[in-house]
């Protein structure tokens, strides 16, 4: 990895939701701050800034990551996907998003993009999780509104494993 000097804004180029994107950031700038305050990404939500709550979860080269535990300069040359990447090309909501709406799987919606990004990766590997497996995976996210019941319902209905 190249040596970066502090107090200097370094050029970063990466692919954000399929589009070539670039900007400048000091080495210490968090990816979460960069996306929100430099690029104006409204889908990125910061909840704890220490990696526990999961609200800022996104994918870096496909790997589920916490934006608050990643420096912006670390994504140089990489692919970053946030919740906008889940929308179908024709617009509107994906099937999983529709299931969240149908099942009232969100209230304030602050934790939702992070949960959707974890689910996006998780369901690729585990397309038919049991409820216990799903709850285990969801335990990496904190939600203070829903009590999780309707999140679980939304996903189980989506994967065709309705209880």
């Amino acid at each position: 990895m190249p040596q970066l000097s502090r107090d200097t804004r370094h050029a970063i180029s990466f692919t954000l939701n399929g589009k070539a994107t670039s900007g400048h950031a000091e080495p210490r700038m968090l990816l979460s701050d960069f996306l929100v305050h430099e690029l104006g990404m409204t889908s990125v939500h910061v909840g704890c800034e220490h990696g526990v709550c999961g609200a800022c979860t996104l994918r870096i080269d496909g790997t589920v990551s916490r934006a608050c535990l990643t420096f912006a300069v670390q994504v140089d040359g990489k692919r970053v996907d946030t919740v906008e990447s889940l929308s179908p090309e024709e617009g509107g909501l994906s099937d999983l998003q529709k299931s969240f709406r149908r099942n009232h799987g969100l209230q304030c919606g602050y934790c939702t993009p992070g949960i959707l990004m974890s689910l996006d990766a998780y369901l690729e590997e585990n397309p038919k999780p049991s409820e216990a497996e799903l709850r285990d995976m969801l335990s990496g996210h904190l939600c203070r509104c829903t009590g999780y019941v309707n999140i679980v319902r939304a996903v189980m209905e989506h994967v065709g494993n309705s209880p």
Binding site: V36, T42, S43, V44, Q97, R101, L106, G109, Y110
Partner: peptide, 18 residues
């Protein structure tokens, strides 16, 4: 179904920091 959800699910809803 909630009219709020489309913006929240697609990330376009603006919270105070945005």
């Amino acid at each position: 179904e909630r009219v709020e959800d489309a913006a929240l699910l697609t990330g376009s809803a603006m919270f105070s920091d945005h």
